[in-house]
């Protein structure tokens, strides 16, 4: 167990319970929460945990601010979509697409890193913003290749679609969709454990040292540029793999679902809410955020009706104001947990 977690135990009982609960909920989601909507939510949580954790690797451990994280996510998704579009459906094309997305992301990340990290961290943030915007425009312009604004539907192998009926287990219908979910779940779990390993490796320690005091890290013999470049590449490549999983799960890819600035913002919020530089923060932050995103509207609708007789309250709780309440939740969480939920639960700083 300790080896699996790379020696990085949650170090708090409440946090451990929370993490185990999330793990169980996700592992048995098709049985615990039948219904396609809740399965969508569970899959989204799995994938975003990986995406957010890979961003935490960069921001929380490396101290590097990037606005191109969704771009790498998109490259992974489009890699799968375009490869299948060109080569036809099949596991080979699927794997190849994911590998292409992985390689392209790694190369672009390396170029960005070597071009800009030598100068200043703020320059890196600006470059990533510029490149991410350029890529988003490019994707919507090259409609012959990427499907433009409409995006592309992806024909994944039939075994992974709802059309593949496999029977029933404990009253739950098992279909290809269930298999697809377990592909997402297993892939996400593996990627998360991989990142946990990386941040607890000698390399991860150097990243933390650089975040603390880059001048000092350089003076004791670490070539800061190379470490930051490698962190950028690793983070981009994991984001690309998360994107590939997302494409396979949704069987669709479009600019809004993968490349949008709103998603970039969501990722930032999830990292901050969960706690930067903790990895586990990605799990908690993502779970809470995605659940709020998906169910806050309903919850508010219910509350609004329940308080129908009270003045003003129903107005305030109207489902249309869910974004406002999400904002309030965010501000409260940052105010009460400046080091994130995980930072708070671990009682550090």
């Amino acid at each position: 167990m300790n080896r699996l977690l790379s020696g990085d135990s949650p170090k708090s009982i409440v946090l451990s319970v929370l993490l185990v609960a999330i793990l169980i909920a996700l592992a048995f989601a098709p049985f615990l929460f039948p219904g396609s909507r809740s399965l969508e939510t569970a899959a989204r949580i799995c994938i975003f945990i990986v995406l957010v954790a890979s961003y935490d690797l960069l921001l929380g451990y490396g101290g590097i601010v990037s606005f191109a994280h969704t771009m790498f996510f998109g490259i992974g998704a489009y890699g799968v979509a375009i490869t299948i579009d060109r080569l036809g459906t099949g596991y080979g094309a699927l794997t190849l697409g994911a590998l292409i997305g992985l390689a392209v992301s790694g190369v672009i990340a390396l170029l960005i890193a070597l071009l800009s990290l030598r100068v200043r961290a703020i320059f890196f943030a600006m470059i990533t913003l510029a490149i991410a915007s350029a890529v988003a425009v490019l994707v919507s312009q090259l409609s012959g290749f990427t499907g433009g604004e409409d995006g592309m539907n992806i024909r994944i192998p039939r075994e992974l679609t709802p059309a593949n009926r496999l029977g029933e287990v404990m009253g739950t219908r098992i279909t290809g969709k269930t298999l697809n979910y377990y592909l997402v779940f297993g892939g996400s779990l593996l990627l998360f454990l991989l990142m946990l390993r990386i941040v607890n490796s000698p390399f991860g320690r150097v990243l933390q040292a650089i975040r603390e005091n880059a001048f000092r890290a350089e003076a004791i013999g670490y070539r800061v540029v190379y470490y930051r470049a490698l962190a950028t590449c690793l983070s981009a490549m994991v984001a690309a793999l998360a994107g590939s999983l997302f494409a396979i799960w949704l069987r669709y890819v479009g600019p809004a679902t993968t490349l949008g600035m709103e998603i970039m913002l969501d990722i930032l919020l999830m990292v901050v809410i969960g706690g930067m530089g903790t990895m586990y923060g990605a799990v908690v932050g993502t779970a809470i955020f995605v659940l709020a995103q998906n169910y806050l509207k309903e919850l508010m609708g219910g509350l609004s009706e329940a308080t129908a007789s009270v003045p003003v309250l129903p107005e305030l709780l109207s489902p249309d104001r869910w974004l406002l309440w999400l904002g309030v939740l965010f501000i409260l969480s940052v105010y009460f947990f400046p080091t994130g939920i995980v930072g708070r639960l671990r009682g550090t700083r």
Binding site: S6, G7, R197, I198, N200, S201, P202, F203, G204, R205, V206, A209, A217, I220, G221, Y222, Y227, L230, L234
Partner: peptide
């Protein structure tokens, strides 16, 4: 961290620092 730098083990990604 200083000893680790001197021993050039900083790019070791796969083992646990501990």
């Amino acid at each position: 961290l200083v000893v680790q730098a001197r021993e050039r083990r900083g790019f070791n990604l796969w083992t646990m620092a501990m």
